[in-house]
């Protein structure tokens, strides 16, 4: 690894990276551009790249209560629902994940490492396999078509990985810091809150970001559990644009842009913690 930098190699890697980025991001960018076009422009041939007469009509339409054409959904409501579900479940996951992660990192109990490993393995199961049993379970509990039910479900799915990330990072905080705090007069809870958690901030932020993004963009469970329009989330709203005979891309584009915004903001503000938090887990699992 201590060789001289090889400019050709790195240039090549850079070009590959750029090509992959374009390949992945172009459709997203295309949809973003489409949100500023009119229905007529989208239908015309040859296809135009940049909007000829840029318009915000699609955006205003999404938020105007009078517009019902092709969709019966109230977008401010959808966005509100999604925020409610994503934020509440993130708070739950962070709270319980921190307590559980601390226990895994600091307490000695039989089977600890096995369970911690099991948490990670549970990530390997496809959620789709659980759709049916989950639906039945939620109906039995009377939690279908309920946002609170969705919050609990997302929290349950998100908790193992969050616990794992937090536990891995807490393990790297020297035990002496806590011992020192306890000698200084702190209770276990105080030493955790005043000494350990501030040092685990990257992991806490990473776990929150991970979960928030996952909960915000989850589609499968939301689509089978939520029935009434008042309870639906943004991902279902996006899917509802696809209808049998019409596909109005300017609305899809506008909605998709709005839905992507929170995720972009989360990454923009959290990215410097994100890699650090993940790496802390990666080095020592």
């Amino acid at each position: 690894m201590n060789e001289q930098p090889r400019p050709l190699y790195w240039t090549f890697l850079g070009i590959v990276g750029i090509v992959i980025s374009i390949y992945v991001l172009f459709p997203v960018f295309w949809l973003f551009l489409a949100s500023f076009k009119t229905q007529a422009e989208l239908a015309q041939l040859p296809i135009s790249f940049w909007p000829e007469t840029p318009t915000l009509e699609a955006y205003t339409a999404l938020f105007s209560p009078t517009h019902q054409k092709g969709q019966l959904l109230d977008w401010p409501q959808l966005i509100g629902n999604s925020f409610f579900v994503a934020i509440s479940s993130t708070v739950l996951v962070l709270f319980f994940g921190t307590l559980a992660g601390y226990a895994f990192a600091r307490l000695n109990f039989p089977g600890r490492d096995l369970i911690l490993g099991g948490l990670l393995i549970s990530r390997m199961f496809q959620g789709a396999a659980l759709l049916l049993p989950t639906y039945r379970l939620m109906s039995m509990l009377g939690l279908q078509d309920s946002l609170v039910g969705l919050v609990l479900l997302y929290s349950a799915f998100g908790l193992p990985f969050a616990t794992w990330i937090i536990a891995s990072s807490l393990r790297e905080i020297p035990k002496e810091l806590e011992e020192s705090a306890m000698i200084d007069g702190a209770s276990r809870l105080q030493s955790m809150v005043m000494v350990v958690l501030p040092l685990a901030t990257p992991a806490l932020i990473t776990a929150s970001m991970w979960h928030f993004v996952g909960a915000w963009s989850e589609f499968a469970f939301a689509s089978i559990l939520l029935e009434s329009n008042a309870n639906k989330t943004v991902t279902i709203g996006l899917a509802s644009f696809v209808e049998l005979f019409t596909l109005e891309f300017q609305y899809v584009g506008a909605a998709a842009t709005i839905v992507a915004l929170p995720i972009m903001l989360v990454f923009f503000f959290g990215q410097r913690y994100f890699t650090r938090g993940l790496l802390a887990g990666a080095v020592k699992g």
Partner: peptide, 20 residues
């Protein structure tokens, strides 16, 4: 008694200073 109730102070090998 818990450490905090013993009225002792301890200096650790790795100092255990609170980094933040």
């Amino acid at each position: 008694l818990a450490p905090k109730e013993r009225n002792i102070a301890m200096v650790f090998q790795n100092y255990a200073l609170y980094p933040h």
